[in-house]
């Protein structure tokens, strides 16, 4: 496993470069998560390269979503949850007390399992983020952000004539793309996706997977998925979690064709999980 991030100076801010040419965007080392007394994640150390799709796979309850929620410090919103270890984004530790989690979350967007548009208009859903971060003034500047975000999320043509209608009135797949557009609107560097297609039908799923493939040109994407096929289709790298531990991580093709760990082999061939 590549350990370059650990040797990189925390304060240098310079990201390490991998041999395959992709710079490391997120570097986690020895991350453990506790829910009260119970430990949910054990010493996870992983590098996530930029402008690629990294898939977290593993059986339910293996800690992959828990780890995902560490990357934007969403676990901070749960009272009993505590995190140890470091996660660096571009070489700066996001668990440093100087880091404001609120600002961090503007850099690390998130898309959830179930589409969760706010009960507001489509337009207001998109400009919620830019508005609270003061990224744009109301008016033409905001209109542009809304249009660009919706276009990047591949939703513009479907909703451009009904931006004032409530976002909750869209279909499930459209709602999920609205949520992606909402995350894009604050111009994040990393987008975390927690089983983004598990509540969608196959056609909407295909649409989102296509979108993920397009988005990796601009953003670093980490996706948690239960579907092996999905991981194989959208990701360049994959990490297999089991019982709160990172079992192995590597290029998706390698993980799926020639895993080095027996547990990975068993899981992807459907022997458990």
């Amino acid at each position: 496993m590549d350990k370059t991030a650990e040797t990189t100076g925390v304060l240098s801010g310079a990201a390490a470069t991998r041999t395959d040419g992709h710079e490391i965007k997120v570097a986690a080392s020895n991350v453990s998560v506790f829910y009260g007394e119970k430990q949910a994640l054990f010493d996870v150390t992983i590098d996530i390269p930029g402008r690629q799709v990294m898939a977290f796979i593993g059986p339910s309850g293996c800690g992959k979503s828990t780890f995902l929620r560490c990357i934007n410090r969403m676990n901070d919103t749960i009272d009993i949850c505590s995190v140890t270890g470091t996660i660096e984004i571009d070489g700066a530790n996001i668990y440093d007390p100087k880091i404001d989690p609120v600002l961090l979350r503007a850099r690390v967007g998130m898309v959830f399992q179930k589409p969760n548009p706010f009960p507001k208009s489509i337009y207001d859903n998109i400009c919620y983020g830019p508005r609270i971060h003061g990224k744009a003034r109301a008016g033409s500047e905001m209109d542009e952000i809304v249009e660009v975000s919706l276009k990047r999320a591949g939703l513009w043509n479907e909703v451009k004539d009904r931006l004032k209608e409530p976002g909750t009135g869209l279909s499930g797949g459209q709602q999920q793309r609205l949520c992606i557009a909402r995350a894009i609107a604050v111009n994040p560097e990393v987008i975390l996706m927690d089983e983004p297609c598990s509540a969608l039908d196959p056609i909407a799923t295909a649409r989102i997977e296509e979108l993920i493939d397009e988005l990796r040109e601009r953003y670093t994407i980490v996706i948690v998925t239960h579907s092996m096929q999905q991981a194989a289709r959208v990701s360049q790298r994959a990490a297999f979690f089991h019982l709160g531990r990172l079992v192995e991580e590597g290029e998706t093709d390698l993980i799926f064709t020639n895993p080095s760990d027996q547990r990975t082999q068993d899981y992807i061939t459907g022997r458990f999980g």
Partner: peptide, 27 residues
């Protein structure tokens, strides 16, 4: 109001007060 509304708002970098004022209270 479902927890997913709060999560959605926090994940966009909203503070607690912003989430309450702009998402929870309207909902």
């Amino acid at each position: 109001v479902p927890q997913s509304m709060r999560d959605g708002s926090y994940a966009l970098g909203a503070t607690k007060a912003e989430t309450i004022r702009q998402v929870l209270l309207p909902a």
